[in-house]
C-alpha cells in the first residue's frame, strides 16, 4: 500500500477513536471508584451541543471546548447528587441521564441544525489538540491509578467502600470527584464530535458512541492501556464502515460486492456485542478486575 494512504488511514482512525477514548477514560476513572454511570451518551450529547453553541456565539473553539467540559461536569453532578447523596439506583439514574441529555441537547440544538463551524485548529500531523489531549490524559490516568497514592485510594474505595470508610477515607467525596472527572471527559468527547469530527450539530449525533465507550471499559477489564487498544480497534471499525459506505462496495478479489449500507453501519454495534462476549465469558477475569463495589450504594452510619 502507498505510504500516504497508510498515514491517512492511521490519522483517520485516530480521529474516529478520539471521542471513544476521551469518554471511556472518564468512565474508567468513575467506575474504578465504584460508581457505574450509564449516562455517558447523554453527557456526550450535552457536551456536544453546548460546545457547539458556545463556539458559534463566541467564535472561540477554546471557549467551546471549555464550555463542553463544564456541561459534562454539570450533567455528572446531577448523577452524583442522585446516586451518592440520595442513594438512587445507579443503573436507573444513568438511563435517566441519557434520556434527559438526549432531550436537552435536541431542544438546545434545534436552532443550530445546519450551522457549521470551523474545525478545531490543527496542532501536529494535521490533528487537533483534543486528539493528543485524549492520549496524554489516558497515560496520566494510567500513571495515577497505578503509581500515585491518591490513585491507590481511589482503587481502594472501588474495591471496598466499607474498609476505606473504616480507615477514614472520605468515600462519598472521592466518588463525587471521580464522577465529575468522568463527566468532564464525556463533555470533551462530545465537543470533539461536534467541533472536530462533524463540525456541525445533528440530533443524536453521538449515535451510541457513549454506550460503546461504556462497553470499552469492560473490554479493557478496567486497565487503562487496554482502553487504548479498544478505542483504536473501534475507531478502525467505524472508519472502515464509513469508508465502505463511501465506496459503495467492497472489493472482493476484484469483484465488487455491494453490501447494504445499513449492514455496514451496524458493524460497530455488532462488534461491540462480539467484543463484550469475548471478554465477559472469562468470569474469573472480570471478577478479579472489576471494582468490587461497582454500582453499590454507600451510606455511612452515624
Amino acid at each position: 500500500m502507498d505510504q500516504v494512504i497508510i498515514v491517512s488511514f492511521v490519522l483517520s482512525v485516530m480521529t474516529a477513536s478520539t471521542p471513544l477514548l476521551l469518554a471511556a477514560t472518564g468512565e474508567l476513572v468513575t467506575e474504578k471508584s465504584g460508581v457505574l454511570n450509564l449516562g455517558v451518551e447523554g453527557m456526550m450529547l450535552v457536551g456536544a451541543i453546548v460546545g457547539f453553541a458556545t463556539t458559534v456565539h463566541t467564535g472561540s473553539s477554546l471557549l467551546g471546548v471549555l464550555a463542553a467540559l463544564l456541561a459534562g461536569m454539570a450533567m455528572s453532578l446531577i448523577f452524583a447528587i442522585l446516586t451518592l447523596t440520595f442513594l438512587a439506583n445507579q443503573v436507573a439514574t444513568g438511563l435517566a441521564l441519557t434520556i434527559f441529555g438526549t432531550g436537552l441537547s435536541a431542544l438546545v440544538g434545534a436552532s443550530y441544525v445546519g450551522t457549521a463551524v470551523e474545525a478545531l485548529p490543527r496542532v501536529l500531523f494535521g490533528q487537533d489538540a483534543l486528539v493528543y489531549l485524549a492520549l496524554v490524559t489516558l497515560f496520566v490516568v494510567a500513571w495515577f491509578l497505578r503509581r500515585s497514592h491518591r490513585g491507590l485510594v481511589l482503587r481502594a474505595i472501588g474495591d471496598s467502600h466499607d474498609a476505606a470508610h473504616a480507615i477514614g477515607y472520605p468515600v462519598i467525596l472521592i466518588r463525587y470527584l471521580a464522577t465529575l472527572f468522568g463527566g468532564a471527559m464525556c463533555g470533551l468527547a462530545g465537543a470533539y464530535m461536534s467541533l472536530a469530527y462533524a463540525t456541525s450539530w445533528a440530533e443524536n449525533m453521538t449515535a451510541g458512541r457513549g454506550w460503546i465507550a461504556v462497553a470499552l471499559v469492560v473490554f479493557a477489564t478496567w486497565r487503562p492501556i487496554w482502553l487504548l487498544v479498544g478505542a483504536y480497534l473501534f475507531g478502525g471499525i467505524m472508519y472502515g464502515s464509513l469508508a465502505i459506505q463511501a465506496a459503495g462496495a467492497i472489493n472482493l478479489f476484484g469483484y465488487p460486492l455491494v453490501v447494504p449500507s445499513q449492514l455496514v453501519s451496524a458493524l460497530p454495534y455488532l462488534a461491540t456485542i462480539v467484543v463484550l462476549v469475548v471478554i465477559s465469558r472469562d468470569r474469573a477475569r472480570i471478577r478479579l478486575n472489576a471494582p468490587a463495589c461497582l454500582g453499590r450504594p454507600f451510606h455511612a452510619a452515624g
Binding site: 491507590l152 482503587r155 481502594a156 474495591d159 471496598s160 466499607d162 474498609a163 476505606a164 473504616a166 480507615i167 478479579l288 468490587a292
Partner: peptide, 10 residues
Amino acid sequence: FQHFSLFETL
C-alpha cells in the same frame, strides 16, 4: 478491626 478493613485485590 473485627472484620478486617483490608482490600482483597491490593
